[in-house]
Design a protein around this nucleic acid. Structure first.
Lengths: 242, 242
DNA sequence: CGATGGTTTGACTTACCTCAAGAACAGTGG
DNA sequence: CCACTGTTCTTGAGGTAAGTCAAACCATCG
């Protein structure tokens, strides 16, 4: 699962923030020369600030760029014919958004900031051109997409074969891993999304999710007030997630 | 959804069968010179025959090649810790298998022939190298992966927000479209997989699926004996699938 | 022919959803 | 700092879609 290996490429952007790639998955496993770094850097100059609730792109928008979350977090969701939303993913710092649009040229889902966030815009045409010259970059791009597929398959498995409480355990451990990857605590973190969003993502009613949180607390597995969560028995939760 | 446009590249393989690309999604939208066609062709020479039930690759196998289904059909599925299978997809002629392995270098799922089938093997390293020189090929590769993500998201939506009968309607129309795309009848076809596999894919108990088929027949929407299916009211089924 | 595995049917159970009503919370403005 | 309003979250009661279990049925196929 972890593709984070190899030399870390440190990029410093124009304002010294945008292109600090120590977290950004697209650069990480690359081993580029100074000149190549500059070129990749050039693609990532454009940065956008998003207030909570801001739409990054809408379903149906023309696909022009991929985005890397720099700070904060986003959710992506599809809207069915009758306006029902289905959340397809949450995207935290260092993660990429928009990969599902490459195929059809328009965004099949909508991306919205869950909190005040910043994202880095990468024009796709330019990225594609550059990746033609940098084999490592090309491979990494494919890897990211493949990883997305892999994740979706895990999610499919979870949503069909697992009980509600198993799903909660799975998603909790998933977040735990993603926070840990960024050097944050694996047992004490803040879920950036509402209970509603989370229940939607898990294919459950909000009421069911609420009851599950209570049950987990009664069992002494976690403590949570609001969005803050402390995992007291990560081993037990992991066991449940299997 | 349909990326099938542009000039059709006709390739004739060594035995005159392997590389007839009129159906193969990787070549379709390309506009290549004679020399390039030969090179792409060269990647696809290796063909494998699979008897029903034959394993193409196992979960955990080192990832070396992608496969294109030439005839017959395959299923792919993941195995959870405790041996439970979750079918992630059915793959018919002209469709590609193995894309989810690019990320981690090993196959995360297992591929098995549903009937006597043939597949075309494409060594991934070679494909990657060639795609560096042929921009159209590179883009098409990304597109295929993105389409897979798109499909998975649709599936996620179906499995969480839709009732059992809606799911059946969705999958029936999906197959209908895929058969039609290959020039076969959209209303009269043979489902290559067992009821068990189909129910697993839809996240339902086999019994539930059986009852659904009966209900659809009672309503005069379809007729089916065994794996043969005739859609009598595709409009109604489409309506249900929404 | 019986043996094997897939499929159907019926009776019963249950995990989760729905509905409805409070409770906690987050802004907003006084 | 406190009302006030709207929103999100929790809790309870009751219903139902789909799962489970068990048995009968039906195809292949040696």
């Amino acid at each position: 699962m972890e593709v984070h290996s190899g030399k870390v490429v440190q990029l410093s952007g124009p304002r010294g923030v945008c292109c600090d790639c120590s977290q950004f998955q697209l650069c990480l496993p690359l081993d580029l020369g100074e000149a190549d770094i500059r070129r990749l850097e050039a693609l990532m100059q454009r940065q956008r600030r998003l207030a909570r609730g801001t739409v990054l792109y809408r379903s149906g928008d023309r696909f022009r760029a991929l985005y890397v979350v720099r700070t904060g977090s986003l959710k992506t969701f599809t809207l069915s014919r009758d306006g029902e939303a289905q959340i397809t993913g949450f995207h935290m710092a260092a993660e990429m958004v928009g990969l599902d649009a490459v195929s059809i040229g328009t965004h099949p889902c909508e991306a919205v900031a869950l909190e005040s966030s910043t994202v880095c815009e990468i024009p796709f045409d330019d990225l594609e051109n550059l990746s033609r010259e940098l084999p490592g970059l090309q491979r990494q791009l494919l890897r990211l997409m493949s990883r997305e597929i892999f994740h979706d398959h895990e999610m499919l498995q979870a949503l069909t074969r697992r009980s509600a409480e198993e799903r909660l355990a799975i998603v909790l451990m998933n977040f735990s891993r993603r926070f840990a990857r960024r050097g944050l605590s694996a047992t004490r973190f803040r879920l950036p999304m509402s209970r509603n969003d989370l229940s939607n993502y898990l294919g459950l009613a909000p009421e069911t999710l609420s009851r599950l949180f209570r049950r987990f607390q009664e069992q002494g597995w976690l403590e949570g007030r609001g969005k803050e969560v402390v995992l007291l028995r990560p081993d037990a939760i992991q066991e449940m997630a299997n």
